[in-house]
C-alpha cells in the first residue's frame, strides 16, 4: 500500500539524515522525500512517499516518532487529503513537434517556462499519476530531461498538522 507520511521536524542540520538513515537502517522504502522549512523557520516539514503493509507502516510512524528531533508525524493517506507534485520536463521542440508539444502542455494544463529554437521546458503540477500520464503521452524520443519534486501533501479541511 502507498502511504504519504508528513513529518514536522526541528529544522536542524542533520535532521534529514536522521530520517533517511532510519529508513535505510530498518529497510523501509522511500519512493520520494521532500523537505523545506515551514512558516516557522525553526520547523521543517517533510513528506515521504513510502509503501508497505499495515504492520510496516505502524513501525514506520512509531520509529519516526521516536526520533528526538521529530515533533509530529501523520499518515496523510489515512484520510482525505490533497497531494501535488511538480515536474519540469525538457523536450525537443522542432518542426511539427513544436506545435504538438504546445498542444500537449495545454491539455495537461502545463506551462512552457523556457523556450529555445529547439527545446521547451514545461512545468506541470498535479497528482503523481497525472505527471506519469503526461510522460506516457509524449513521444519518449523527444524527452530530453525530467526532474520531479516528489509528492507533497496536506490534509483536507480541519485536519491540520501544526505544533
Amino acid at each position: 500500500m502507498r502511504h504519504i507520511i508528513s513529518i514536522l521536524i526541528e529544522n536542524e542540520s542533520g535532521a534529514l539524515s536522521r530520517v533517511a538513515g532510519l529508513f535505510s537502517a530498518r529497510g523501509y522504502n522511500i519512493e520520494s522525500l521532500t523537505v523545506a522549512p515551514t512558516e516557522d523557520p525553526s520547523l521543517s516539514r517533510m513528506t515521504i512517499l513510502t509503501s508497505g503493509s499495515d504492520e510496516v507502516l505502524e513501525q514506520i510512524t512509531k520509529q519516526l516518532n521516536k526520533l528526538v528531533d521529530v515533533v509530529k508525524v501523520v499518515d496523510l493517506s489515512e484520510a482525505a487529503h490533497v497531494e501535488r507534485e511538480l515536474m519540469l520536463i525538457k523536450v525537443r521542440a522542432t518542426g511539427k513537434d513544436r506545435e504538438e508539444m504546445k498542444r500537449m502542455a495545454d491539455i495537461f494544463r502545463g506551462r512552457i517556462i523556457d523556450v529555445t529554437e529547439s527545446t521547451f521546458v514545461i512545468e506541470l503540477t498535479g497528482a503523481s499519476a497525472k505527471l506519469d500520464s503526461f510522460i506516457a503521452a509524449l513521444d519518449a524520443g523527444l524527452i530530453l530531461e525530467t526532474v520531479r519534486t516528489g509528492v507533497c501533501g496536506i490534509g483536507r479541511g480541519d485536519r491540520i498538522l501544526k505544533v
Binding site: 542540520s13 542533520g14 536522521r18 538513515g21 537502517a25 528526538v68
Partner: peptide, 14 residues
C-alpha cells in the same frame, strides 16, 4: 562523529 554514531545513539549533538 555525529554521522558515524547516528545509527547507534538515542540522539547526538554537534
Amino acid at each position: 562523529t555525529v554521522g558515524i554514531t547516528r545509527p547507534c545513539v538515542k540522539h547526538n549533538f554537534l
